[in-house]
Amino acid sequence: MTAAIELDGLVRNFGERTVLSGLSLSVPAGTSLAVLGRNGAGKSTLLRILATLLRPHAGRVAIFGRDLPADGWAVRGRIGLLSHEPLLYRELSGRENLTYHARLHGVGADRVEEVLAAVGMARRGDDPVRSCSRGMVQRLAVARAVLHRPELLLLDEPKSNLDPAASDLIEPLIGRSSGVTRVLTSHDPEAALAEVDLVLAIAQGRAAYLGPPSGIDSETIRGLYR
């Protein structure tokens, strides 16, 4: 069985600065990976590379056995990205935004209603996004990310701006119980560890730790963010 994600010596530079220098790992399908590291460690960069939005500068990246960036077109529809930005148009309503993305992905209108209801936004679905609170925007962004039923979810701090009730609401969509392969970053590493099978800690562009959450202690984690 092919792994959902395979990295071998992944390098990504920004100008002269090397953000990721030689990451290698393998994530089996159906498992969850937490990516830890302080701000600027390259967590978001890694997520963007996996989402086919950034190309690797060296090394091999394969998603579902297809090499990036050459085969990006083949896996693009199977990936859902929840990034820092909601990727929603402010002037359009939540429903219109989702309908637009549904058209891009070739998904039916009934699925739009389904995800709107799932994130508890069915009633407020016609409000323009600019008038929504940040928590509501985040819920819409979750709806957008899972709209096309992706097999791989890339979640950049998925629970930011969400109150506990909303967190519980989106849990079946993007949580461990969704059953899909997940890569997530979090502003709350301790909480993230509880819901993943694998942990990757990035420091100086390299893997400072790669293994099960049980193998990393809170002291090491605190060291990462120091």
Binding site: T52, R76, R90
Partner: peptide
């Protein structure tokens, strides 16, 4: 407003 990313994520 992230329209480029949203578009690039779609298999189109």
């Amino acid at each position: 407003q992230g329209g480029f990313d949203g578009f690039l994520l779609a298999p189109v």
